[in-house]
Structures are given as structure tokens and as C-alpha cells.
Amino acid sequence: MSQGLAGYIIRRLLWTVPVIVAISILVFLLLRLGPLDPVESILGQRYTEEGADRLREKYGYDRPVHIQYLKYVQNLFQGDLGVSTRHQNFTVAEVVIPKIRVSAGMGVMAMVLVFGLGVPAGVFAALRRGTFLDPLTIGFWLLIDSVPVLISAIWAQWLFALQFGWVDLTYGGVFHPNIILPVFVMSLPGVAGVARLMRASVIQVSTEDYVRTARSKGLREQTVVVSHVVRNALLPMITVIGLALPGIFAGALFTELLFGIPGIAREALQAVLAPDFDVVLGLVLFGSILFVFANILVDVAYGFIDPRIRLSAARGS
């Protein structure tokens, strides 16, 4: 790796620190200074001043906001994300980590499925350009894409569980076969985007000089397509992987709600409604870090694959 790239990465990483700090302060203040009050929610109609005082003391809400924030940061450096108030007597880590595991597992599977379906569909459409198969393939996936998960989830449950009896809807963990249906439903809307991008990319690469050179060398058409066109056309797809990562976490809400999957999106919704300050904050920070790092990762990966980009990044620094 060139000096320039290393410096570039370090600078990018350093930049994330103020970003994360700013986000944490903003969210912390939004939660504490708004009308939300977890103690009120815990006690509900059982509220008494003395009971509430004891809980405020327990959670530290009786202290001034800036002290609460500093305390939070101090704990953060010791790896302590705070405590949940919706799940009393559980720490944020205990509440959030199992759910991140669930969402991450599903996310990876969904991503594999999205690309597994989208890339071949795109290549297929591009190679059949000019025939009815091109618009048919892309059109089919666009049609699927335009069905909201809210609808497709219910349809899929009815079809595959009730009509065919292929799957059960009981949740048995991320590695249980029952996870296939929600992952499938979650992936469907993403395929069209990948397919279209892949199609455009294949068509664009096909006009490159080196493809023409390869053809004129007398290489077999299949070799040209596979080693020259598709391989190079895959390059822009990396950005999609990176940028889709936070999207998969964020976009899973309806899948999680309709399949009753204990993932991060459902927890985030419930944490906001509860309200559960530390869990909300923990999730926002997790999401921000994920997003920032995914971006850096994409840039770096890009550099590894395409030397031209590495060069310009280095030159840019």
C-alpha cells in the first residue's frame, strides 16, 4: 500500500471522531431535553414522587444534563453503553448485541441473495440487449421492486406457509431454516437496483477498447464476456455493497415487524417509543459508525481493485 493511501485512511478515520462525538451530543440532548421521560414510562400509573426519585437516582437522571453526558462518555470508554430502561436490569449491550447479531446475519444473507440474483440478471439482460428478454428481465425485477415489503411479506406468509406449507413462521434463530422466507422477502426489493446497475455496467464495459481488442485477438465470445466484460463490470458494484450495508439494517423494519424477528430495527422503534435513552443512543452510534466505516471500506476496497483510483487518491493527498 502506498504511503499516500495509508495517510488517506488515517485522515478519514480521524475525521470520524468529531462526527461521532457531534452525533452523540446531538442525540443525547434531543433525548434528554425533549418531553420524553423513561421514569414516567416505567412507573406508568403507579407513579409516586418517592418511587420516581429512587429511579431517577438509579439511572442518574437527577443530575444536570452535561454531567450525565460526561458520565456517559466516561462509561463508554470503559466499554459500558449504559442500561436499558425498557428492559429493566439489562445493560444496553445485553439488549442490543443479540439483536445486532440477528440483523447482521439476516443482512449478510439478504446481501448475498440480492447480488446472487441481481448480478446474473443484469448480465443476462445486457447480453440480450435488443431482444425482448432484456426489458422482460429488468421489468420483472422492477415489478417485484415496486411491491412494498409490507405487502410482499404478508403475501409470502400466506403463499409459502399456508398454501404450500413449505415453511413455518415460528422464529427459531438466524440459523434456523425458517429464516429463509423473511430473508427472501427482504431481498426482493434490492434485486432490481443491482440488476440495472450491473446491466448498465456490462453495456458500458462492452464498448471499451480492451474488449474490442480481446475480440479482435480472436478470443472466444464466452471468454471475452467472462474475463473481460463481467469482471470489470463488477467493479462499480462494490460501492453498492458498501452503501447498502447501513440500508439493510435500516430497511429491515417491516420484515422484522411482520415476521416478528427480534432484530435491530424493531428494537430501535420500540426504544424510541418506550423511551429507552441509552438504547436509542447506542443504536444511533452503532448506525453512524457502521455508515462511516462502510464508506471508508468502500473507498479502500476500490483502491485495491482499481489501481487508477489508488493512484488518484494518493495524488490527491
Partner: peptide, 17 residues
């Protein structure tokens, strides 16, 4: 007690619960 999973009535119809 199942704590997660798809729609209760669908699971009921599907003989899971």
C-alpha cells in the same frame, strides 16, 4: 411461549401454535 415469529393468526392456521 414463543416470543417472536410471524403473524399469530397465520401461525395458528399453519398449525404452529
Amino acid at each position: 411461549f414463543t416470543l417472536a415469529g410471524g403473524s399469530l393468526s397465520t401461525r395458528f392456521q399453519n398449525d404452529e401454535i
